[in-house]
Write a protein that binds this DNA or RNA. Structure first.
Length: 770
DNA sequence: CTCGGCAGAATTTTT
DNA sequence: TTCTGCCGAG
C-alpha cells in the first residue's frame, strides 16, 4: 500500500485520479486500508457478484466504496445505478458515506433507496398503467385495516369470526409472494370466511384503485405487473441501470426477488450483499433461499466471502460463532479476527424477575459510564417490544439518559396522524380513509347518522367522500346542524386547497390545525398528555419545513414513518433485536434470554425448527452488535398480561461455548439454570460454585413446596415433530371456544372454525378430538 | 350525538 | 395490566 502522506491527498484528486499525477499506478484513496477480499468485492464490477459478508466485516464500507468506485471511474452516472436497501437508515447512511468518499455530496442518485421507496418512484411514473393517478396515497397498516373492515361489513361477514386483521395478514402474505388475486390458490383462499379470501382480496384491490391508493405490497407488485405487461418499460429499466446493488439480500421476499430478476434481466452487473446467518425476517416473507440460490440464478457469479471481523473481541466472536454453529443449512462462514487480546468474556447472569434484571442493567450501565464509557455506545437489545418498558421505568427512576429507538414512530402518534390526514385530503381529495379519520375530529356534530348518510350518497353517486359531502351539504337530506357542520368542513377544505397553491406547506399545516379547531381541541383537553400532543404537532410542522413540497413530505411520511433524529446526546439505546440489525455498539445488554420469550414460544409453535434457527440467528445478531462487552441475562419470573409466569433460562445460553462466557450467580436467585444445562448434556462446571449450588437447592425445595410450571417440559412436548395429531375437517372441542371444525393444520397450530366463536387460531394442545 | 362504564381481547419482530 | 370496541344514559 502506498504510504503517501495525508497532506498530499486532495479528496477530489483521490476520487478522480488523473494521469498527470506523479504515481500513475497509485490507487485512489478510497481503496486504501481494504483487505484483499474487500478490495475484490469493490473492484469486481462486471457480471454478477455475491458478497457473503459476515457481521462486522466491513460490509457497508465495501458497499459504499464500490459505488464510489463506479462513480469515480465514471463507469456510470449516478442516475444509472440502482442501489437497494431495506431500511431508510441504511439508504441514508450509504448516501452520506459515498459523499464522504468521493468528496462532497452526490447528486442524482435517484435510484438509491429502500425497495419500497424505489417501487413507489417507479409506480408514480407509470401510475395510469396500474389504474392510479401519479399522486396516489400510500396506505399504512392502519388505513389498510379500516378499509378491510369496511369491505367485511359490506359483505356481511362477521368481523368477530373473521377479523380484518387476519385478512390483512393473509393479503400481506400473498403480496409478499407476488400473488395477485387470480394467483391465490384455492387452499389459501379457503383460509378465510369459507373461501371468500380471494374475492375479498380482489375487492380490496378494487377499492384501493377507487381511492387512488396503494399499500406497501403494491409498491412492488404493481411495478412487476407493469414491467411484465409493457415490454418497452421493462427495456427502459433494464438499460437504464448499468450497475445494480442490493444490500441485505438474505431479507428479500419473493416479490422483491421477482422485481430484481426483471430489472436485472439484460444487464447482469448485479451485486448482492448479504449474510444468511443474519436472516431474521422470514416471518414477514423473506426467503433465505434467495441468497442460497444466487449462483444458480446468475450462472458464473463470483462469490466473495468477507470473514475478517473488525468489530468484536475474540471472546464475543467465539461466543457468537459457537452459538450459530448449532444451525444447520448455512452457507458457512468462519469469522476471524486478528485481535490478540481475547477481551472480556460474555457475562451471563440470572435474576429473580424482570425488575431486578432492569435494576442490574441500569446500575451496570452507570458503572461503565463512570469508568468512562459513553452511554451512546451502549444498547439494551430485547426480543419483544413489551420488554422495553421495564428498562424505561428503571432508567427514568434513576435518571439514566436513554433513547428508545424504533418504537411508537413519531408519525404514528394519533395527533400527528390526524394532522397528516387533513393534509392528505388537501393533497389528494379522493383519500376517503383520511377524510373519514378526521371528519369528526375535532367533534363537529357529525356522528354515525351523518356519516352513514354520507357513505350512502357516495356509493349511489359513485363519488369520493369529499365530493359526496359537498353534494349532501347542498341537499336537504341531513339535519340542519349536521348539514351546516358538513358544509363548513367542505368549504374549509376547498379554501385550504386554494391556499396550498400559494402558502408554504408548513404554514398551511399550521393554518389547517388552527382553523379546523384541532389545536383548540387539544388546548381544551385537560388530560396530562395534551400538552405533549401540542408539542408533537409543533414538531411535525417544524419537520415539514425540510421538505420541498407537501407531496414530498407526505411521501416521506408514508414510507419512513419516523423522524430522522440525529441525536448526539449521550444516551443509552433501547431497542428490539430486529431494530439493531446493522448497528454496532461498544457494549451490548441482552436481557430476557428465557425459554418462551427468547426463543419465542410462538415462533417455536408456528415454525418449529426453522423458527428456532431464526431465533438463534437473532441471538447471533445481538451478540455480534457488540465491540467490547456483552451482558446476557435472564429472569426466573416475569409478568405477562398481568400474570406471573416463571421460565427457564434460554437454551441459547446452554449453546454458548463455555470458554467464552462468565456465568455469574446472583444472591437471592433460585432458578434451575444448572439443571437445565445438565438436561441438555451441557457443562455445568461454572455453576458448581457455592452460590449456584445454593441457588439450585433453593429452587429444588421451592419446587417441592409449590410446583412451578415446567416450561422445559412444555417445550419438549410442543417441539415434537411427530405431533401432527389433527387433520383438516375433524371436529374438535376447545375449553373456551366450544365445538368446531378444523380448517387448516400448520404444525401444531390449528385454524379452527368454531360453531359459536368463529374461526380462531389455536394450539393443538388446547383442543381435543370429539 | 356524546360520554362514560363495562366486557373482552391481547402481545413478537417492520418496510 | 392495558387497550379496544360496544352499549346505554343523558
Amino acid at each position: 500500500m502506498t504510504a503517501r502522506p495525508h497532506s498530499y491527498v486532495d479528496p477530489l484528486d483521490a476520487a478522480f485520479p488523473t494521469s498527470s499525477r506523479a504515481e500513475p499506478a497509485a490507487e485512489p484513496a478510497y481503496l486504501r486500508g481494504l483487505n484483499a477480499e474487500q478490495r475484490e468485492a469493490v473492484l469486481a464490477l462486471d457480471g454478477p457478484v455475491l458478497v457473503l459478508a459476515g457481521a462486522g466485516t466491513g460490509k457497508t464500507r465495501v458497499l459504499t466504496t464500490r459505488l464510489a468506485h463506479i462513480l469515480a471511474t465514471k463507469r456510470a452516472w449516478p442516475s444509472q445505478i440502482l442501489a437497494v436497501t431495506f431500511t431508510n437508515k441504511a439508504a441514508r447512511e450509504m448516501k452520506e458515506r459515498i459523499g464522504a468518499l468521493i468528496g462532497g455530496t452526490v447528486e442524482g442518485m435517484q435510484w438509491l433507496g429502500t425497495f419500497h421507496a424505489i417501487g413507489a418512484r417507479m409506480l408514480r411514473r407509470h401510475a395510469e398503467l396500474a389504474g392510479l393517478k401519479p399522486n396516489f396515497t400510500i396506505l399504512d397498516t392502519d388505513d389498510q385495516l379500516r378499509l378491510l373492515k369496511q369491505i367485511l361489513e359490506a359483505e356481511n361477514i362477521d368481523e368477530k369470526r373473521f377479523p380484518a386483521r387476519t385478512l390483512a395478514l393473509l393479503i400481506d402474505g400473498w403480496k409478499n409472494r407476488g400473488q395477485l388475486p387470480p394467483d391465490v390458490t384455492d387452499g389459501d383462499a379457503q383460509a378465510f370466511a369459507f373461501g371468500k379470501g380471494r374475492s375479498l382480496y380482489a375487492m380490496y384491490q378494487a377499492r384501493l384503485k377507487a381511492l387512488n391508493a396503494a399499500d406497501f405490497g403494491d409498491l412492488l407488485l404493481e411495478p412487476i405487473a407493469i414491467m411484465r405487461a409493457h415490454r418497452e418499460i421493462l427495456d427502459d429499466y433494464q438499460h437504464r441501470f448499468r450497475y445494480m446493488l442490493v444490500d441485505e439480500y438474505q431479507d428479500t421476499n419473493v416479490a422483491q426477488y421477482l422485481w430484481l430478476r426483471l430489472i436485472s434481466g439484460a444487464n447482469k452487473n448485479l451485486c448482492v450483499v448479504g449474510d444468511d446467518d443474519q436472516s431474521i425476517y422470514a416471518w414477514r416473507g423473506a426467503e433465505v433461499e434467495n441468497i442460497l440460490r444466487f449462483e444458480r440464478d446468475y450462472p458464473g457469479a463470483k462469490v466473495i466471502r468477507l470473514e475478517r471481523n473488525y468489530r468484536s473481541t475474540p471472546a464475543i466472536l467465539g461466543a457468537a460463532s459457537g452459538l450459530i454453529a448449532a444451525n444447520a443449512g448455512r452457507l458457512g462462514k468462519t469469522l476471524w479476527t486478528e485481535s490478540e487480546e481475547p477481551g472480556e468474556k460474555v457475562q451471563v447472569k440470572g435474576f429473580w424477575d424482570a425488575e431486578e434484571e432492569a435494576r442490574n442493567v441500569a446500575s451496570e450501565a452507570e458503572n461503565l459510564k463512570r469508568q468512562g464509557r459513553a452511554l451512546s455506545g451502549m444498547a439494551v437489545l430485547v426480543r419483544a417490544s413489551f420488554q422495553i418498558r421495564a428498562f424505561e421505568d428503571r432508567f427514568l427512576a434513576i435518571g439514566l439518559p436513554f433513547r428508545v429507538v424504533g418504537t411508537t414512530p413519531f408519525y404514528n402518534r394519533a395527533e400527528n396522524r390526524d394532522a397528516i390526514a387533513y393534509l392528505r385530503v388537501i393533497a389528494q381529495g379522493d383519500d376517503d380513509l383520511a377524510f373519514e379519520r378526521i371528519i369528526n375530529k375535532p367533534k363537529r356534530g357529525l356522528g354515525d347518522v351523518a356519516i352513514q348518510a354520507l357513505h350512502n350518497h357516495a356509493r349511489t353517486a359513485n363519488l369520493p367522500l369529499l365530493m359526496a359531502a359537498e353534494e349532501l351539504a347542498a341537499s336537504e337530506e341531513l339535519a340542519p346542524k349536521a348539514r351546516t357542520a358538513l358544509s363548513d368542513l367542505v368549504k374549509s377544505f376547498a379554501r385550504w386547497r386554494q391556499q396550498s397553491m400559494q402558502l408554504p406547506h408548513a404554514e398551511l399545516a399550521e393554518m389547517v390545525l388552527d382553523e379546523s379547531g384541532y389545536t383548540d381541541m387539544l388546548k381544551a383537553d385537560k388530560s396530562p398528555d395534551a400538552a405533549g400532543r401540542l408539542d408533537n404537532l409543533k414538531e411535525l410542522v417544524r419537520a415539514m419545513e425540510q421538505y420541498e413540497s407537501l407531496t414530498a413530505f407526505l411521501e416521506h411520511v408514508s414510507l419512513v414513518m419516523d423522524l430522522e433524529n440525529n441525536e448526539t446526546e449521550d444516551k443509552i439505546n433501547l431497542m428490539t433485536l430486529h431494530g439493531a440489525k446493522g448497528l454496532e455498539f461498544d457494549i451490548v445488554f441482552l436481557p430476557g434470554w428465557e425459554e418462551g420469550l427468547f426463543p419465542s414460544q410462538r415462533t417455536l409453535d408456528e415454525k418449529g425448527t426453522t423458527g428456532l434457527e431464526e431465533e438463534r440467528r437473532l441471538a447471533y445478531v445481538g451478540l455480534t452488535r457488540a465491540k467490547s462487552r456483552v451482558f446476557i441475562s435472564f429472569a426466573a419470573n416475569r409478568r405477562v398480561h398481568g400474570q406471573w409466569q416463571s421460565a427457564l433460562p434460554s437454551r441459547f445460553i446452554g449453546e454458548l461455548p463455555e470458554a467464552h462466557i462468565d456465568a455469574v450467580a446472583d444472591e437471592g436467585f433460585y432458578g434451575n439454570y444448572g439443571t437445565f444445562r445438565d438436561n441438555q448434556g451441557g457443562f455445568s462446571s461454572p455453576y458448581s460454585s457455592p452460590g449456584w449450588r445454593r441457588a439450585q437447592e433453593a429452587r429444588a425445595s421451592a419446587r417441592e413446596r409449590a410446583p412451578i410450571i415446567d416450561v422445559a417440559a412444555k417445550v419438549v412436548a410442543t417441539g415434537d415433530p411427530t405431533a401432527a395429531k389433527f387433520a383438516t375437517g375433524e371436529r374438535v372441542f376447545h375449553q373456551k371456544f366450544g365445538y368446531g371444525r378444523i380448517v387448516t393444520v400448520e404444525g401444531n397450530k390449528l385454524l379452527v372454525n368454531f360453531d359459536k366463536a368463529g374461526s380462531k387460531r389455536v394450539m393443538d394442545g388446547f383442543v381435543e378430538k370429539v
